[in-house]
Amino acid sequence: MTIMISVAELSKNFVLHTQGGTVIPVFENLSLDVNAGECVCLHGPSGSGKSSLLRSLYANYKPTSGSISVAHEGGWVDLTKAEPYKIVEVRRQTVGYVSQFLRVIPRVPALEVVAEPAKLVGLPAQAAEEKAKSLLSRLNIPERLWSIAPATFSGGEQQRVNIARGFVRDYPVLLLDEPTASLDAANRQVVIELILEAKARGTAIVGIFHDAEVREAVADRLFEVMAFQRSAA
């Protein structure tokens, strides 16, 4: 088995300076290894720190202590210590992230939003767009919407654009934050297929899946984030 992500003794708390310096502990001494081709489901009730952990794995949140090592181009990069440019590189090459909400950029059409990550790693524009089109079709985004900026799309359409963007490249590591939250059954099924295909290619996946059907279809194991809450909290 090839380890792709290795989290060691990770702790995270928030200090709210605007609220009189209140400290909100999230998790403590958390360790987790994720292998290639494995899908780990972060589990626990709301507020247990699933999202904070997932965001830390994308270096979007800065953990308080501990390390997050990601296998990147034949070496290891510790996301808690890496230079910003290195993190940008890791995000471009190695770690993909599908958030719950699409951050819409004015005027950029849906097709371009989806194709962009592939173009950034040097795929020819036409090949990137072909890939983007096939994903948008699979996710049932009508072709008439492809050339429109997704700002006016419905929540479900925006989320599918977001998913397409996450799968347009074969990232070695993929982080999924409730990718099926506002999708109907048919599209949920497409997402399940996409995840299973990625696993088969050897992608290491960490996700939050509230939907039991999806969870059972894709997850190899559940990871209880609650277990790492500070006992004295």
Partner: peptide, 15 residues
């Protein structure tokens, strides 16, 4: 990183 600083600001002034 921009998203780090904006999504998880640490300094009181940034918050």
């Amino acid at each position: 990183l921009t998203d780090q600083v904006l999504d998880d600001p640490h300094h009181p002034y940034t918050q």
